[in-house]
Amino acid sequence: MYNKLLSGVIFVGAIKLKDLSYSYDGKNKVLSEINFNLRKDKTLSIIGTSNSGKTTLLKILNGELEYQGEVYINGILVNSNNFGALRRCIAVVYRDSSFITDKVKDELRYSLENINLSPKEITKRINGINEYFNINRILNKAIDSLSINDKTLVKILSYAIMEPSYIAIDDLLIDLNTRTKILLLNYLNSKKITLINVTSDMEDVLYTDYVLCLYNGIDAIDGKSLEVLKNEKILKRLGLSLPFMIDLSIQLELYGLINRVYLNKEAMVKNLWK
């Protein structure tokens, strides 16, 4: 029924989901038999309808739930015994993740002080953040007084500053303005923190290498972002939209006006009006 695309080659993933299933009451399966491998250093978007199990998948990666199947992150099996080791591998940021402290500066430093990182190193990391985001202007401000953009940024950075291998974000990028979002993606890239982004904004899928689409707890489609996004029929049948340029390209292709997908408006316009 659902067209399931696998990327051409089976590889050893840095995040490996094998026959992953989860049910909270033993009857209704929130996730069914997910098999997915994410290569090291490849970013991932997770999309899907509202009840498809996206947040549950993040909770499982975070080690919060007992699941059936196997989940490995950087070769470490996700279970309660490996809690400590997994903290350096993955950080998960939810919409309702709490702030522990009052001030921006304290929140950013909190996790680093917990592991007794030297003040020199802590300052170095904060300076690193400041280069991208000019965070100095809000370092001494109370978190409650910040705008939604700044507050969300601080929330994400308070986890990113730990420099885990992976950071999973549950649909929080929609609260950032585009400029901050791009800076964040660049920052994560520069620190080699691989992003797993659950998103309801299809345009953001273009920022990641791979995408996994869930529907009713099943892997409906997955693969390289651009290839998956070209599957207009499946995505529209699931109720999702396409990023604007891809939607436009595919429909103009049907009219015979262009012969491929253009992401860049300059190139598309040049080819439309030859």
Binding site: A91, V92, S98, N114, I115, Y159, M162
Partner: peptide, 9 residues
């Protein structure tokens, strides 16, 4: 819990 995820021990 969130404190633990931020490495509090």
């Amino acid at each position: 819990n969130d404190m633990k995820y931020k490495l509090y021990n």
